[in-house]
Design a protein around this nucleic acid. Structure first.
Lengths: 334, 334
DNA sequence: ATGACTTACTAAACCGGTTTAGTGCAAGGA
DNA sequence: TCCTTGCACTAAACCGGTTTAGTAAGTCAT
């Protein structure tokens, strides 16, 4: 079956392409009533669907944005995507979702592909390896919003959690219950990823604030598959923390596996608090206390900011990052 | 900054657009060595990135497919999307992901938008409300693959779990441990969604096979927010099952909340088995036994099937659905 | 009757690539 | 010398829309 084009509709209705185009775009000011009806009928009869690719080419906009997440395995990423998608849908935009797997080369190649596909803008969870490229895109006035992570120069709007506050809340909750020996579990910090760095920094500051000492051995920041081993070696060393603060959901999963393997009871043997929530944490025998991120708000604001930038093209030299307050969900694991 | 076009590159290199196009597409057979170098240099110097929209318009293919999931809140959906994405990346395809929220109208409007955007094909978790439209698309030889759910007429390839087997395994596990009073928890079946219907059917068959009676009052199939109430009313009625089979992750969450609220012990007071896994289930005090779907395989095969259909355009009149065997993960909740 | 305005519509350029059909030139063969 | 052939490259049509500039016909005031 041949694809129906605007010309087919025009011929059928006995008008020119231009008139059909006017009809499609609801510009009826100078269209006769009978012409309007004839075009309408022709469209319906032929089942005509306008080709957005042709439209995009001429109008130099695609109604599409790209989202490049650092690691789609984090629940945080999928929730942000969901929120962005909702906001975009309200504004007639569509989403390309890409997963950079924390690899700058992969991120770079996705940016290239998305630019080639003429997306109108990008939301990026930046890895730390393409800062020069970001600068080029800034020069070209390409609309971008950063989420979750900062790069050295704040050349695009950046939205992220107030990570230090989150750590402070975590430590405070633990300290309030008399925990003095508090360890931390994080995924790898080899790449200087903003939230991990800031959460560890906040944790150290908070320990100091509460008069607790920082025990570097109790800070686990490893690739996911190494976390269990490292925790076990701390445990086997005999110098054991009374509680752990897991800085994200993946770290928490590994921590809980370790706790299970060593048959420890929460909170009797070990206190637990984490950043990022999951519906299953509420249903655990000992429900796990967490610090939620306002993912919905962050995602929605990211989309709003980007869409605004797309229409205004009003780029500032630098941007102040926008911080979001963490939300404590007190349960029973402390 | 003005966008660099192929013409800009051509002028800079002192050749025609056609030659640049040949270069971009690696057709070097009839290109002089010095020309090649000049074009190469011009592209690099100008930072030229070819416009895929223009290319798509001429070539009538976009290298893009659409995925419309019924409900993105199911872990199953996100895992399938991930697998499709991986397979597409390997083949240079990109993904539009859309969430129909189980609403046929929303699904229909997404299909329209994606067709307008000239996606090369679609993976759909079909709601049951657009069967006529699917038939139109089949007539137009538009490549589609269905996942997770079947529609009446199998006009496109369909990939899904062997749901009845999954239920049989669930019931068998429970029966093996001497459970005779087995209830079921599902999300709403108002829309006749294939997996839910089949899982309930399989559960009933399996009960019969094990000589157990079907107690309709123990079958909870409600909207998510109603499940808790319904479970509670069963419990309060005094006629209580000894175990529940949750037919998906969302149903399981509601079941676990109910169990928690009533301070029941798993498996002493109540046995639990569910379809769909989550990393947190393994770390529960009593790890929950589940029946996993081979989501990775289903997603990958869906993408493979679709991409094959896109290149071959070889449509069969009807398709036999492809069933995947469920995978039992025995833990301690039975 | 004439010019000025409206109204309803259209021709053709344009977006930025790909592709087809050729062109000009040099080398080789008759 | 003329003709063929292969090489290196180009002009122009084309994809399917949008948009600009313009036209033809009718109305109205003068």
């Amino acid at each position: 079956m041949k694809k129906i084009t605007m010309q087919d509709v025009a011929s059928k209705a006995g008008v020119s392409k231009s008139t059909v185009s006017q009809y499609i775009n609801n510009r009826f000011e100078f269209m006769g009533a009978s012409t309007k009806l004839r075009v309408e009928a022709a469209i319906k009869e032929l089942g005509y669907i306008p080709n957005q690719v042709a439209k995009s080419l001429k109008q130099k906009k695609t109604g599409t944005i790209g989202v490049i997440v650092a690691n789609i395995l984090h629940a945080f990423s999928t929730e942000i995507i969901r929120a962005i998608e909702d906001e975009c849908e309200r504004n007639g935009f569509h989403l390309f979702v890409c997963n950079a797997d924390d690899q700058p080369e992969k991120e770079r190649s996705y940016i290239d592909m998305l630019v080639a596909k003429q997306v109108d803008g990008l939301v990026i969870f930046p890895t730390n390896g393409n800062n020069d490229y970001y600068k080029q895109l800034k020069n070209a006035e390409f609309p971008i919003v950063f989420v979750d992570r900062m790069i050295n120069e704040p050349i695009f709007p950046t939205l992220l959690l107030d990570n230090e506050s989150a750590s402070q809340i975590a430590v405070e909750q633990l300290a309030k219950k008399g925990r003095e020996k508090i360890g931390l579990v994080s995924t790898s910090i080899a790449q200087n990823v903003t939230p991990r760095i800031e959460r560890i920094r906040g944790y150290k500051k908070a320990l100091a604030f509460h008069g607790l000492s920082v025990e570097e051995d109790w800070i686990v920041a490893e690739e996911r598959q190494e976390i269990g081993k490292k925790l076990q070696s701390i445990w086997d060393s005999g110098s054991r923390p009374e509680a752990f603060f897991a800085t994200n959901d993946l770290a928490l999963i590994e921590l809980l596996k370790f706790i299970k393997k060593n048959k420890l009871a929460i909170p009797e043997d070990i206190g637990v608090i984490a950043i990022d929530d999951s519906p299953f944490l509420e249903t655990a025998t000992t429900p796990i206390s967490v610090i939620k991120q306002p993912t919905f708000e962050i995602g929605q604001n990211a989309a709003e900011t980007l869409l605004k930038l797309i229409v205004s093209k009003d780029f500032k030299e630098v941007y102040e990052e926008r911080r979001y307050p963490p939300i404590l969900v007190e349960r029973e694991s402390i």
